[in-house]
Amino acid sequence: MRIASLGMYVQARQEVANDALWAALAERLRARGVADVPERLERRRAVQDVWRDPDLLFGQICGFPLVSNPALGLQVLGVPVYDAPGCEGGRHRSLIIARADDADGIVAYRGRRAAINGRDSNTGMNLFRALIAGEAGGEPFFADVRETGAHRQSISAVILGEADIAAIDAVTYAATLRGEPELVPALRIVGETAESWAPPFVTAAGTDADTVAALKAALAEVIADPALAGEREALFLRGVVPGDLERYLPLRTLESAAAAAGYLVLH
């Protein structure tokens, strides 16, 4: 059986919206004759595992592993356009956060503690590394870098004093503050990274051309359906623009530039 996954943005309101979005997509795919369309989104498995599954019909992936792990071989269906601070025209960035009563500006955090969601994350690590590489001078910048497993956990680490600074995906940050407005007074933005293309919608390498065409057509219909306006708003999802793997190759260039600056590892 094929699988579908929307595991990038999973704040409670987003998960409900993802279910509705997938139900609408699945209905349109079946109407186009696509076989083995799953009833529900896969939530039992880690997204990294789902990305490697040859039965992946529809999913969403972080841009950095898409191009840094050639073994994945995923096909890009489209690039989401998000309507959140730090996002525009299919592009997004990381917002660098700290506690509200802490220092302003990136340079003030030399020798402090950083949190990242994972070493393979574009917004949590790759864009952050590119920013810090310009300040580090090829030397360790942070006293410690803690991997938390998720952007939301990185936010908690900063608030709880377990870390001092973190790079948070702009969509995740907007969703967190919308769902937990009590966090607003506890945080401040002390910088932002360069922009990159938002996490694309993808399908497995082996998905046939007719199914790829059906996926793209169904996705376009769901994005335009007035009945799903509330679900798209919950996801900050304004539209989808065409895209391919080549759009994400500059993320490898950022990695190469950090390596050339003597800062291949964020530390």
Rank of each mutant, 00 (worst) to 15 (best):
K216I: 12
E135T: 00
G138K: 05
E231K: 13
L187I: 12
V240W: 07
T211E: 04
A213G: 03
I106K: 05
N122S: 12
V222L: 12
S154L: 04
L56Y: 10
I189R: 11
R44M: 00
D208W: 02
A259Y: 09
L77P: 00
L177S: 02
R2M: 08
H267P: 07
L72D: 07
V202S: 01
Y82M: 05
E233A: 15
M1D: 07
I165H: 03
R28P: 06
Y109W: 10
D164C: 01
R43L: 02
D144I: 03
G206I: 10
D164L: 00
F58M: 12
S156E: 08
A46L: 11
P185D: 04
G149H: 09
A17M: 08
A133K: 04
E246Y: 12
V67M: 12
G89N: 13
H151T: 00
E39T: 11
I97A: 00
A4L: 09
G33D: 03
W197D: 02
T207I: 11
D225P: 15
I168M: 07
P199F: 03
P199S: 05
R247Y: 13
L177T: 07
A175Y: 04
A220W: 07
D102Y: 05
R43G: 01
P70R: 07
A108L: 11
G239K: 06
D164P: 04
A229L: 14
D104G: 05
M8V: 14
S68D: 15
A150C: 03
A23M: 03
G179V: 14
L77W: 02
A234I: 11
A194N: 13
L249W: 13
P185F: 09
E233Y: 06
P38R: 01
R52L: 03
T176E: 15
V37I: 09
D164Y: 01
D104Y: 13
A136Q: 04
G33K: 03
G7K: 00
D101P: 02
L41F: 11
D36M: 06
R93S: 03
P65C: 11
V79I: 15
Q14K: 09
I223C: 12
D208T: 02
L25W: 05
G89R: 12
R52C: 01
A98D: 06
P38C: 03
G239H: 13
R52F: 04
R188N: 00
L131W: 12
P200W: 05
L266K: 05
D101T: 04
L29N: 14
G138A: 05
I106P: 07
